[in-house]
Amino acid sequence: MNLLCQSTNFAAYQCDQRRCFFLTHGSKEMQLSCCQFIALRQKLNSLDLSAHFDGRNPSGIEILSVCNRAHLLVLDTHQVLELKNLLRASFGFMEMNSMV
């Protein structure tokens, strides 16, 4: 298992043997296929965070379904940013890895 990136609440791993990714959130562990990992990245990037600040989403809560709805993530603004950064760093790390 290769650690891609770790933050306060989340961590992302790549498992070469099983050809998949793992995302942990506290004690929760989610297994994602490559497609699902890419889809999660897109989902996070398409969230409209400005809605958290201009009254359109006053609770600032986002509910994300992961792995074709096998898991649900309920995230506040900070956690969305944290997870977004985690995925950006993970994909950045993989891009670096592919260059060597």
């Binding site: 050809r19 998949c20 490559c34 890419i38 890895n97 592919s98």
Partner: peptide
């Protein structure tokens, strides 16, 4: 480390 993403997407 394998390059899983690259293997999946060109």
């Amino acid at each position: 480390m394998k390059d899983l993403v690259r293997q999946k997407i060109s």
